[in-house]
């Protein structure tokens, strides 16, 4: 029996998204499954953004907090450090301090932080709220305005607040993260709602909700695979935006990244364990279809980039 390579070509294509102004980055654009260069076109590598915050990262575990000691007290210093020292290709600023249970910083406070960061760095910026439905709807429109002209990604828009946030992204020429909770149908529905209000599907980044390795990764993995197959095989246009893996936030709060080795000797080095946990969550989700990743630890980013090199 002669062997013939069982190649598969798909009618659909993932939308390529370009962000940034002076320096730009593009991700998405492939017409095949993740890294299947042997049977399709994969024009862009996934983009990793370093996560920074408007307030000091007091709840980050030691392994990753100590990396930013001396810069994380000031988002501007922190952003510069990522761009200059870590050679970040993109930076994701999360405005956790605006959450009512955190410091409840105002939209104006957030705008000041965003302006400071935008003035300090040239790489493309992702600006995210605190994931508080009402507060985000208040804060994100204000910061979208401040960031006008920088072609950022704003987020996250959810079913309960998408109208205000999408309108702000549209008016100020930004891309938008559309988040739903681990359900392909909800994800599709949100993208439909967005396009119905006139928001271009070419400016959407789908966030099907991340989970960490060992804590529901298989759910995110399979939802991502299903979204990608809908985009490629069924050529479903609303399912064709590239996908986000918001990895760092989910990884650096679980036990495996915090439990010390003297308490759990059978788990080995805490430092290596935490970094691998972040990198492996990221690489697994990339294999399922994520093209944009938000991460925290520079070594995890470095290993993930190397893995991408070997696949591209």
């Amino acid at each position: 029996m002669a062997f013939a390579e069982p190649k598969e070509a798909f009618p659909g294509q993932v939308v390529p998204v370009t962000i940034g102004s002076e320096i730009q980055e593009t991700f998405g654009g492939e017409n095949t499954l993740p890294f299947h260069k042997f049977e399709g076109s994969v024009p862009n590598r996934p983009l990793i953004a370093y996560e920074i915050q408007d307030v000091p990262p007091e709840d980050w575990p030691e392994t990753v907090r100590k990396v930013y000691e001396g810069v994380s007290d000031d988002p501007v210093k922190w952003a510069r450090y990522c761009e200059d020292e870590l050679k970040a290709r993109s930076i994701a600023l999360r405005l956790v301090g605006t959450h009512p249970d955190s410091k409840n910083l105002s939209a104006d406070d957030a705008a000041t932080v965003v302006k400071g960061v935008l003035d300090a760095v040239k790489v493309p910026i992702i600006i995210m709220g605190s994931n508080h439905v009402e507060k985000d709807a208040e804060v994100l429109p204000r910061v979208a305005e401040v960031a006008k002209g920088r072609n950022c990604i704003i987020g996250k828009a959810q079913e309960k607040n998408y109208k205000t946030i999408a309108a702000a992204a549209m008016a100020n020429d930004h891309k938008l993260i559309a988040m739903s909770e681990l359900d392909i149908n909800l994800s599709k529905q949100l993208n439909i709602l967005l396009t119905q209000m006139g928001f271009s599907r070419e400016k959407i980044i789908t966030d099907p909700m991340c989970s960490a390795l060992g804590y529901g990764l298989e759910y995110t993995y399979s939802v991502m695979e299903r979204i990608r197959l809908a985009a490629l095989a069924q050529n479903d246009e609303v399912m064709q935006p590239p996908m986000l893996g918001d990895v760092g936030m989910y990884v650096w709060k679980i036990k495996e990244t915090q439990a010390p080795e003297d308490v759990l000797p059978e788990w080995g080095s805490l430092e290596e364990r935490g970094i691998l946990w972040e990198a492996m969550t990221a690489t697994s989700l990339m294999l399922a279809g994520a093209e944009l990743l938000i991460m925290r630890h520079p070594r995890a980013v470095e290993y993930t980039e190397r893995f991408i090199d070997e696949l591209m």
Binding site: E256, W267, G268, E272, A279, M280, T283, R306, F307
Partner: peptide
Amino acid sequence: ALVAGLGVCKYASIVVMSSAEKWKNLA
């Protein structure tokens, strides 16, 4: 570990590695 993870996700039945540190095994 990351390349081994590729084998896990994508259809390997046996993954041969050069080390087996506890933290790596756990992941």
